[in-house]
Amino acid sequence: MAPALIVARRELAGYFATPVAYVFIVIFLVLAGALTFTLGNFFGRGQADLIPFFSFVPWLFLFLVPALTMRLWAEERRLGTIELLLTLPLPQWQAVAGKFLAAWAFCGIALALTFPLWITVNVLGAPDNGVILSGYVGCLLVAGAYLALGAAVSALTKNQVVAFVLAVALCFVFAAAGSPVVTEFLDTRIPQLAEIARAVSVADRFGGFTRGVISARDILFFASFMGFFLFVNAVVLDHRKAD
């Protein structure tokens, strides 16, 4: 097993050894369910799909994922275990990758536990399960993007509150970049920036997945987004680990 996977396994077990995992999963499921059935008008729409659910997931992740990542490196610093972990014979990027993979797998578990929604639409109608699957893939990629960003921020600061607020703010920038409010404003003032804003918008990319379109460009976008911020994480960690 690669060192990254050994680290990931330990981390994931760590989530479930503390209340973090249960609080996160319960809050996520309650909010996702409540929003889908109330604001999302799940029954009233009369359509057998999960669009109401998927439309809320990125906004839930916007707050919940930074709650997960804020402790990623800060906790290691507080306990001093960062000194232990980084003096074990593993390349530093493997430690970064391991922590990220554990958090990502954890988000995957939380998403998988929304399966009653999927069962519900299949009982009530005949949804296109391919579209639903692609929506879930999109959710997982959005979680991965926010996690990579949040983890990098967590490496930057010792303070968990600072890490949380900064991560939410930065995730919000990428979530909102493609929204009409932003792009229309930029279109009239600085058109070049509007193009960039649309290109880096996580929400826009995610929209394709909820319609059942998995394009190579979007996959590449999320992969490079995660790769970039994991790289930033490793660099920041190298400079600030001993602070």
Binding site: R10, G14, A17, T18, L79, G80, T81, E83, L84, T87
Partner: peptide, 9 residues
């Protein structure tokens, strides 16, 4: 390391 850090859980 100083303080013998370990993962408490």
């Amino acid at each position: 390391p100083e303080g013998a850090p370990t993962y408490p859980e």
